[in-house]
Design a protein around this nucleic acid. Structure first.
Length: 274
DNA sequence: CCCCTATCCTGAGGGC
DNA sequence: TGCCCTCAGGATAGGG
């Protein structure tokens, strides 16, 4: 389940190897994962082009080409984007392979196929309706004072639902929503508009903190996530609540509760998060 | 408009 | 050992 910290780790891993590399050939492409445009145009759009820059927006990986187009990859639930030797055998569910002039291959693998690949200029992807409008980045200097604070102040939805809304906060998923709520001592099921100003402020400060910590540990490898080289991250070991339902709260030792909020498994401490 | 639920998909894990 | 059932969830479509 790659969220912002996992996607950021992948981008940082791949950047020095991809920028300046030329795409010799699109070796393999599963049309199912390519949402825009059609597969033939994707091949024509990447072959012979050089990677100019790598970026991230929310959970989307952007691979900028010298043509002004960008290859955009969303990893969904189980996607990985890894750099491998071109000679190494590709695993099953590898949907996209880009042969680079360095002798490596950039491989997109996604067993569950919840992810997707797009190609186009930024404006084109937006106009085609395949790139959703995303909210504010948690590492934006204005994060705690902007859109997210306003939506939290007024929304009748549960706090957790707001945190997961990509149109409000870009890049937050189930893991870091729960972690931020724990750190801020806010119950994830609370209606957002009922939070006090202090609680709201704690929550908005907590999110970039838990994400920065996860990036330092190279991401949470609960199941499928791997970094840009195929290795696991270490952040799962230091999570406070995610995946720990029924176990003891690290702060007060009471049993962590597990419920469903906004359709997602949610873990919190009934005592610490009043 | 707002919010919730069902859906897509495979692999892991539990029960028997 | 093996089979079957359930569950995990990001984004989106559709319903109330």
């Amino acid at each position: 389940m790659p969220e912002l910290p996992e996607v950021e780790t992948i981008v940082r891993d791949l950047r020095p190897y991809l920028v300046g590399s030329r795409v010799e050939a699109l070796v393999h492409l599963n049309p199912v994962v390519v949402r825009y445009p059609d597969p033939q145009n994707v091949a024509a759009g990447v072959e012979g082009h050089t990677v100019a820059w790598l970026g991230r927006r929310g959970k989307f990986i952007q691979i900028g080409l010298d043509s002004a187009q960008e290859l955009v990859v969303h990893l969904g639930m189980s996607g990985t984007l890894t750099l491998e030797l071109a000679a190494a055998p590709a695993r099953t569910h590898t949907h996209l392979r880009l042969r680079l002039n360095s002798g490596s291959e950039l491989r997109y693998r996604d067993p569950r196929r919840f992810g997707r690949v797009l190609l186009g200029t930024e404006g084109e992807l937006e106009q085609a309706g395949v790139m959703p409008h995303l909210g504010v980045e948690p590492f934006d200097p204005d994060f705690a004072a902007g859109l997210a604070a306003e939506v939290l102040r007024t929304s009748r939805r549960p706090v957790k639902a707001v945190l997961l809304d990509q149109g409000v906060i870009a890049g937050c998923g189930n893991i870091y929503a729960d972690e931020a709520c724990f750190l801020a001592r806010v119950r994830p099921g609370r209606r957002a508009w009922r939070l006090t100003a202090a609680e709201r402020r704690r929550l908005l400060l907590a999110l970039p903190i838990v994400m920065a910590e996860a990036i330092e540990r190279r991401g949470t490898s609960f199941s499928d996530y791997r970094d840009g080289f195929g290795a696991k991250g270490q952040a799962f070991e230091t999570l406070f609540v995610y995946g720990r339902g029924g176990r003891a709260c690290v702060r007060c030792r009471s049993t962590l509760r597990q419920v469903r909020i906004a359709g997602r498994t949610t873990v919190f401490c009934g005592r610490c998060q009043s």
